[in-house]
């Protein structure tokens, strides 16, 4: 259990720095979608630090998750709005606004500041899984000249799909964890942290791949 505490506290916090550092090294080569993901990671890292500080001072920190969900959804939606055209692209901004309003209502009237925002986060996960599937569909219809693995955006989309689909049940049942015993809480959150680390690794690969631009040889 001691190892899991260490894993949760340091390993997870450190893992977010890997994609951020790689992205900063390749900043000039990043397209707008990858820059959005970089901003999202920096924002997550800041909130994660705030969360850790509050937790170490025994200050209730669940309100941070309510606040985080609004921006998380906005960043991810911004990333996908750069991928889609037409009706889907037009629907994204109103969806972000509606979601933000729902988060605020949920925070003040439904799941107040001492509870996890399970409703809004589950809803967010469902919408983002939808984005991921639409992105896969779009990629399937595009006759790409390059291998799947050589395109950064594919790695980002995979990271997001794995994170939101695997965390879905944890999002849904996280309020039950508030009253569970300590060992169970540690095991479940360690599972969640492993998913985040996997997501960060996939993001790091994406930022690394943007350095190796596919070359068209002139014969």
């Amino acid at each position: 259990m001691h190892f899991l505490h260490f894993y949760e506290r340091y390993f997870l916090s450190g893992s977010i720095l890997i994609p951020i550092i790689i992205a900063l090294f390749n900043y000039k080569l990043l397209g707008m979608p990858l820059k959005v993901i970089l901003y999202f990671l920096v924002f997550s890292a800041v909130l994660q630090t705030v969360n850790m500080i509050l937790s170490s001072q025994y200050i209730p920190n669940l309100f941070v998750f309510h606040f985080y969900a609004i921006f998380e959804f906005a960043f991810v939606s911004w990333f996908y709005s750069l991928q889609f055209k037409g009706l889907i692209n037009k629907l994204i901004p109103p969806m972000v606004l509606t979601f933000a309003v729902l988060c605020v209502i949920n925070f003040f009237y439904i799941q107040k500041k001492l509870e996890f925002n399970t409703y809004t986060r589950s809803l967010e996960a469902v919408i983002i899984i939808g984005y991921c599937v639409m992105f896969f569909n779009k990629q399937m219809q595009t006759n790409s000249k390059y291998k799947w693995g050589s395109l950064s955006l594919n790695w980002i989309n995979t990271g997001l799909l794995i994170f939101y689909s695997c965390s879905f049940f944890i999002f849904m049942f996280s309020n039950y964890l508030l009253n569970a015993n300590k060992h169970i809480i540690t095991v479940v959150w360690s599972t969640y942290d492993t998913i985040i680390i996997l997501e960060n690794i996939l993001f790091a690969i994406a930022f690394y791949k943007c350095r190796k631009q596919p070359i068209i040889s002139l014969y």
Partner: peptide, 8 residues
């Protein structure tokens, strides 16, 4: 919680 981990 066991079910959540299995589902995940």
């Amino acid at each position: 919680f066991v079910l959540v981990i299995i589902a995940t």
